[in-house]
Write a protein that binds this DNA or RNA. Sequence first.
DNA 1: TTCAATGCATCAACTCTCTTGATCCATGCA
DNA 2: TGCATGGATCAAGAGAGTTGATGCATTGAA
Lengths: 303, 303
Amino acid sequence: MSKQFPLNALRVFEAVARHLSFTKAGEELGLTQTAVSYQVKLLEDTLGEVLFLRQPRRIQLTDAGQRLAPKVSDGFDLLRAAVSEMQGSADATLTIHATSTFASHWLARHLGIFQLDNPTLAVRLETSQEVIDFSRTEADLAIRVGKGDWPGLRSHFLMRNHFTPMLSPKLAATIGTIKEPLDLLKLKIIDPSDPWWKIWFTASGHPDAPLEYQSRSRLGAQAVEAAAAMAGHGVAILRPEFYQDDVAMGRLVQPFSLTCEDGSHYWLVYPQSRRHTAKIRAFRDFLKKALPDFDANPFDGTQ
Amino acid sequence: MSKQFPLNALRVFEAVARHLSFTKAGEELGLTQTAVSYQVKLLEDTLGEVLFLRQPRRIQLTDAGQRLAPKVSDGFDLLRAAVSEMQGSADATLTIHATSTFASHWLARHLGIFQLDNPTLAVRLETSQEVIDFSRTEADLAIRVGKGDWPGLRSHFLMRNHFTPMLSPKLAATIGTIKEPLDLLKLKIIDPSDPWWKIWFTASGHPDAPLEYQSRSRLGAQAVEAAAAMAGHGVAILRPEFYQDDVAMGRLVQPFSLTCEDGSHYWLVYPQSRRHTAKIRAFRDFLKKALPDFDANPFDGTQ
DNA sequence: TTCAATGCATCAACTCTCTTGATCCATGCA
DNA sequence: TGCATGGATCAAGAGAGTTGATGCATTGAA
């Protein structure tokens, strides 16, 4: 079965053997009668066997052709089945990669609706902080934070990413009321090297707020910082919408209404080439319904 | 399984899945690594599924690929088997078309040797007077009389065709001895419209011998005329070598040693495209050994 | 008998798929 | 650190495969 062997000719032969007509077979395959004739002859030449007897207005399988035809049909049936089955079962699982923050604070809440709408689709949710590479990881789609400009990938805007300081009410109580942004500096900043802090203090009118840049690296995930904040270990800078529950439960407070952005937002992302897949379409449609700003342009004037 | 589906890509995928290497698969198939890469991507695009995870120095099947690979292998195994089995069994039968004259007077005598040399080959001998068309009849090769110039066919000279009057000794006795060609005209000429008579009489010095051209058409087969001659119904004009047995048995006599030709000779003939088939090669070799003049040029000077 | 319809073969021209070779990049190993 | 391995990417090119026109033989209907 080396590259020499004309597989396409074999496929054509199979169709011709079924129809016993070059023309009909051509129609089935979307070929002209000429092409069919050519392919059959090509196959006959490589096999060294005549497969059809050309009688005036009809063709007929030779003994050789008769022996070959059913087995070739079986072979192609198997291939067809293999392919469609593979596609079927692959379609049955949707693998989503998301940051743990988004997964736990947004997806967890909304995925139920998607699953109700798509009962046959098993969802596999993988969380990772890294930006996954679709060619190296088995994932159908991903939720990423960034600018939406990833080459080779299709991206849809999901929601803006903004942030504001948050801390546990208990910790806040230790310094009385928090009136002024600079008050926060009396407390421990959980990750002062996070550029978000610089942005926020600048926006609040304190571009020179003293932040200890030298300290530990980012904890890596907003969720971890949030947990630390809830535990009263310090002040975190978070996306407030993700923690409304915790605010309601009294685990966190948002002392200032000022929120800032750094230009990175949440995006749905998947490989260009797979944009027409049913399951991807389904998830895209779900997000479109669930998110008012889906596919909006975060960079136009209307903030 | 329409023409859209890249069958070749599937074949490439099968090889890659076995080797787990684009390069190795390429070597097996006689392709460059680039081509393999292209084909795999093509297949992935049409399926809408990633089949391999590209890790730095190795690749790995995805779930989808893992499901697909074994079934595709099975499918190709089936096709491979179908093809080789067909070829095998087709190679096991050699169908020869010959004129009944040649079949009964030459082949019948010599075919035994061929079958001893090729015990696995079943020989099917079909006799017919018509010049068969290989595209309309199931035949591997044919023995024909003619000039050896059939388009699309390969032909090998077998033996000259020449002829001389022959008759039963009993019939000859009815007019005493036969000394002179014209003596034959005292007897019934079995098929006087046969152009061979005209040629022979002319060669014997009697271009004006009165032959009843108007009479019945040729009996069609030399064998039939020979039978008539043996039965004493008249004089036939035959290829003497074919009837040496009958001469020996006293059924026929050849009154004159003069033999003539009409430019047509015996040829082995088969489709160009099948010249490399094992069974055709075998039969050709057999004739080469059995016939001293095999593949000689009957038209050169050396008669 | 003649005429129209059907179906395959043939031919030349072209298209576009597929292949090649060069180059690049990342990783693993010495 | 430097080399070998293995895959991706790119531009260029070849050639397999298609197409459409045409021809031929047969069948069936008028």
